[in-house]
């Protein structure tokens, strides 16, 4: 791989994390005073001064920023004001719920979206294709939380089939609490995963259709047909394979969207993940939790973008040559 291209992408990722870290650090300075948060409003001035010194708050800000980064690198974000527990513990505890939700939704959206897009492209004149395109407009227009509420109304309130909140029973595999191995855990996952996946299904289907139509117009597809190769082979071996490149990019962006909208879905279903943790922290101005969440999100998104760019460059030499 071209080292210049690689360095530029890594540089961008580092810059993103750096800027977010500045913002996250600054938040602690602007919102609330940690000394007051810990000691309460009517602590004596001497106790405040002592704690201020003990926490290093009397140091100039570059020193405090470096200390903040040093702590962050070791996963040390202090104590949650509300839970009075280390933030790192809370996050580690909540990661599995969000990851399982987002990955289920990703699999669901690719597994349904890709075939729908292929079908809509191959039989593009059929009524199925136009129904699908109409459906996709509705799909992207459905707010995630409205889908969740509709599902809860039908399957929890009316039919009483599925649980409307929580993760069900979880099983510990090492430090990872999984809900995928119990019947109640799987039942609890169904509706949140569908709510999260719906708008993504529509996006994936639209994208695959557009790319596939583009590829089907290419000369090599016409030559393949002229050589008498069967339609099915042309469609799946020649055409679909060449639409995979944009799908790589989109899957990356999709993971980002899934994590963003997981915040919403988690709130609807009271799913005990990072999203509900973050929203509760935002409501209560629990700065250490907000700071840790910001840093986590920054690293995650910078990382996803970096990986997508790398994959893209590996798959398409024109990208790395043009930019390098």
């Amino acid at each position: 791989m071209n080292p210049v291209y690689f360095a530029r992408r890594v540089g961008h990722a580092v810059l993103v994390v750096f800027i977010v870290s500045l913002i996250a650090f600054q938040l602690g300075e602007v919102i609330g005073d940690p000394v007051t948060a810990i000691l309460g409003l009517d602590a004596p001035a001497s106790a405040r001064e002592a704690l201020r010194e003990q926490m290093g708050l009397d140091q100039p800000w570059p020193v405090r920023y470096l200390a903040f980064i040093g702590d962050a690198l070791q996963g040390e974000f202090g104590m949650s004001y509300r839970a009075q527990r280390p933030v790192a513990d809370i996050i580690v505890e909540r990661i599995p719920a969000t990851v399982e939700l987002a990955i289920s939704a990703l699999i669901l959206s690719l597994w349904i979206g890709i075939p729908l897009g292929v079908v809509a492209a191959i039989w593009r004149e059929s009524c199925w294709a136009s129904a699908l395109m109409t459906g996709s407009v509705v799909g992207v227009s459905l707010p995630t939380f409205v889908v969740g509420i509709m599902l809860i109304f039908v399957f929890s309130v009316q039919l009483g089939m599925l649980p409307s909140f929580g993760r069900g029973q979880t099983v510990a595999i090492g430090a990872w609490q999984t809900g995928l191995l119990t019947a109640s855990g799987l039942a609890a996952l169904i509706m949140p995963a569908i709510s999260l996946a719906i708008s993504q299904v529509a996006l994936v289907a639209r994208l695959v259709r557009a790319e596939m139509l583009e590829v089907l117009r290419m000369d090599y597809i016409r030559f393949a047909r002229a050589r008498g190769i069967r339609d099915r082979v042309v469609h799946f071996r020649h055409a679909l394979r060449n639409t995979l490149l944009p799908i790589i990019t989109v899957s990356g962006i999709q993971i980002g969207y899934l994590i963003a909208f997981a915040v919403v879905v988690e709130q609807v279903f009271q799913w005990p993940g990072l999203g509900t943790m973050f929203l509760a922290a935002l409501t209560e101005s629990d700065i250490p939790v907000i700071t840790a969440f910001l840093m986590l999100i920054a690293c995650l998104f910078a990382g996803i973008n970096l990986i997508v760019d790398m994959l893209y460059a590996l798959a398409d030499p024109r990208v790395r040559l043009a930019e390098g």
Binding site: V16, I19, L27, I31, Y257, A260, V263, I290, I297, N305
Partner: peptide, 17 residues
């Protein structure tokens, strides 16, 4: 840098903070 994050998440962050 802003494009690195989904707009919905940014709006939530800016609004909430």
């Amino acid at each position: 840098i802003q494009f690195t994050f989904p707009a919905m998440l940014l709006a939530l962050l800016i609004g909430g903070l």
